[in-house]
Design a protein around this nucleic acid. Structure first.
Lengths: 153, 153
DNA sequence: TAATTAATGTTAGACGCCTAACTAATCGCT
DNA sequence: AGCGATTAGTTAGGCGTCTAACATTAATTA
């Protein structure tokens, strides 16, 4: 690949990441949430109670990030924690009633975010966009996995 | 747009942002740089000496981010600062010789980053990917602009 | 010209995310 | 059965980014 293509690709991805994150943050602020917390709430809503390790895998981030996010969600009363009965190392996280009451607003906010994200597209259909982004997300996941498989212990 | 589409879109964008940023960070770390600094260096290489306000606009971030990034680049000896002669508020930032010596490695790293980003694509050609991402980046820029135009003083 | 408004850059403090280092518990192998 | 290796979670400290508040200088307008 030549430099101009690489530059264009990386630059587009940088601005996409920053802008989408920023729009997401303003949507979530209206609900009293910070960015990152939504992915835990949605995962708990979809899958039921999960350990923090499962949440880390689902959210694609590292354990310390989960520790801190769960602590804050617990302080907000949106989530509860209890020790796992089967594995005494593990902590099971569960949505509280108050947490579930957020789900409706969260869905609306997420639709609004997606709509403003694609509102200004000039030559791409939304279905094609989603298709393309899924392909890219998968490619980046394998690139990331390959990278730290190559990183020794 | 229905919720499932919105969820898929937002989720793909979240992972794309996180993974690409993370890959970029490991590339830059090899050069002794942190993420974000590369966009200033590249802008200075492309456009010549710039004020911090111009750098903020080009990088798509806020003035305090530039202040801190420029301070660190200056401490590394990659960049020099001098007061503008025409506007006594402004600071002009310029690449040093040591900064220019990084450009070659930076280009190589950026090509490598782009290649690993797209290496795992299964159903999208690179040219189409760039086209689609440019469209999306532009859409998100206008969404962000509209948002804080709506935010009053 | 004088007064108001706008722009440049800084500091302070917050956020999410990261890595490194650690404890405690479980797993795996001999 | 026991010991080394792995896994779950936490703490400490770093990064880039943001907003809010501020001082300084420039531009606008009365």
């Amino acid at each position: 690949m030549d430099y101009n293509q690489a530059y264009a690709l990386n630059r587009a991805l940088r601005t996409i990441g920053m802008r989408h994150r920023s729009l997401a943050a303003t949507e979530l602020n209206r609900l009293g949430l910070a960015i990152g917390q939504e992915s835990l709430i949605m995962e708990l809503a979809n899958q039921g109670p999960r350990t923090q390790a499962q949440l880390a895998t689902a959210a694609g981030c590292e354990p310390p990030t989960i520790t801190s996010a769960v602590q804050k969600l617990e302080a907000l009363g949106l989530v509860s924690r209890r020790p796992s009965t089967k594995d005494r190392r593990a902590t099971v996280v569960e949505l509280t009633v108050k947490g579930e009451s957020l789900l409706e607003g969260l869905s609306a906010a997420w639709i609004h975010l997606a709509e403003s994200t694609v509102a200004g597209l000039s030559r791409t259909k939304v279905e094609d966009m989603i298709e393309t982004l899924d392909d890219l997300a998968a490619s980046l996941e394998t690139a990331a996995r390959d990278l730290d498989a190559r990183r020794p212990t």
